[in-house]
Design a protein around this nucleic acid. Structure first.
Lengths: 261, 261
DNA sequence: CTCGGGAGTTGCACGGTGCGCGACGAAGAC
DNA sequence: GTCTTCGTCGCGCACCGTGCAACTCCCGAG
């Protein structure tokens, strides 16, 4: 009773699954894809052929395998342009990066992961790997904790019910511990992760609200543990919260009396 | 005989069309989508329901219309990560932006448009609108001219056969004129546009080659006409070409004897 | 060289499935 | 109140997508 709802157009659903499989594998051949989709390779062949025709897939000219196409980038660009949140948030993120001199991300929830829709790298960062479009779990990122904390109760519990994958030594895998932390996130207005996603990486995040008050995104500041020590996090969190509030304000959210002392 | 090839899974094809329509319109209701797809609204309802279930679409909680979902951003991120071109190109683009102090883009061809897959904004730019994922026509952008110029002859002619839309007063709409320019692009190694995309915007671009010598992307430098005057363009083009060559080198391309004097 | 195996595509026939139709409930406009 | 528009849901038929198998390439082994 969890994927029984909604429409059930078999081939469309299969097409999406195919895209996700290819996204995960990097590139895939027809037979291999058919095997993973559990369909005949002829069916897989027709499917990828259709998707490639529309630019969502491309076939490598040398090894003839399929990979994701730039048509997806085009659609994603439209998806991000459609939401004015990126447009409104970007300058704020830039000043946040300048103030903290660390990497700043804007993340939203999509399914059971965080998706980063904008990023500004701090002047001090050495490597400038783009995280835009990358997905990470909800339970071990600061963005994810914020988004989880402000979800409606039922969604939150559904996410907590699933097993929490351990990605680092300090990843929180006990739902009870996480639940306590989430309550504190709601209370304090920010979340932190201390080497929970990967060793040596700390982060803080704060919620961004749209006009109706719903939390739709989170801004995070992340950096190496030696620069962002535990004692620095509350100060960084303050910056993140100020930035998040500024973005919320630009989105039309007016702060009403909240239960903050 | 132009969309007859390839697979023809009706509902998959319709799904992609639906995504493109919604991308163009911003957001769409079920009936409206059904009308544009020329199907019964019940069919459209099932289609969007399936797509929304998989995160490619999301429905606005207030007006119940559908818009593109962040699942697309996730897929696009994987698409870009799959290609190492962005990873290799980014630092080069940064130094190019620093040298020219203008906005730098990396574009690839997708269907009949240019899609920008990375961007670094120059220190002088006032507005920092992200073009990543945006699509622009081939015939009136410097990136597009480069990509067009180095296409296989048949693809190039097919693109030239289609009507060239006028987007600005100085947009080139005569295929013959454009063809002459493209030949010159191949000869000189760079392309330029002078207020052809929009009034007051100039740009130059140079080709990026992958290991087998094929041109897969173009780097461009663009800026307002008062800073990038016609007389400045050759100098800017030299910078763009140096950057493009550096990226090509990182992608494994070794320069062979070309027909350059 | 031949032979075997795996990958990808195409024609064909059948059965399942996605289609349009119409009905229904809900939410405005007036 | 009526009337319209929207979105969803059953239903039955036609049609389309599926699996099968045959085919062509392309490697690599022997």
């Amino acid at each position: 009773m969890r994927d029984e709802d909604g429409g059930n157009l078999r081939s469309v659903r299969r097409a999406v699954t195919a895209l996700e499989l290819i996204a995960e594998a990097g590139e895939l051949g027809v037979s291999e894809l058919g095997r993973r989709l559990d369909v005949h390779k002829a069916t897989a062949s027709r499917l990828v052929s259709t998707l490639a025709e529309r630019g969502l897939l491309e076939r490598d000219p040398v090894n003839e395998r399929y990979r994701l196409g730039f048509g997806l980038v085009r659609l994603a660009g439209a998806a991000m342009a459609g939401l004015d949140i990126v447009r409104e948030a970007h300058p704020v993120l830039e000043s946040l990066a300048e103030r903290t001199r660390e990497t700043v991300n804007l993340g939203v929830i999509s399914g059971d992961s965080v998706v980063y829709i904008d990023q500004v790298t701090g002047t001090r960062s050495v490597v400038a790997v783009s995280w835009i479009g990358r997905r990470t779990p909800l339970h071990c990122t600061s963005n994810g904790k914020v988004l989880l904390a402000f979800e409606p109760r039922e969604d939150r519990e559904r996410h907590l019910a699933e097993p929490l994958e351990r990605l680092a030594e300090r990843t929180i895998v006990d739902p009870a511990v996480l639940r306590t932390q989430l309550d504190e996130v709601v209370r304090t207005g920010y979340a932190q992760t201390i080497e929970e996603l990967e060793e040596g990486l700390n982060a803080v995040a704060a919620p961004v609200r749209q006009a109706d008050g719903r939390v739709v995104a989170a801004t995070s500041v992340s950096g190496p543990a030696f620069r962002m020590r535990g004692i620095d996090l509350p100060r960084m969190a303050r910056f993140a919260m100020e930035a998040a509030d500024a973005i919320s304000h630009r989105l039309g959210y007016v702060e009403r009396a909240r239960n903050v002392g």
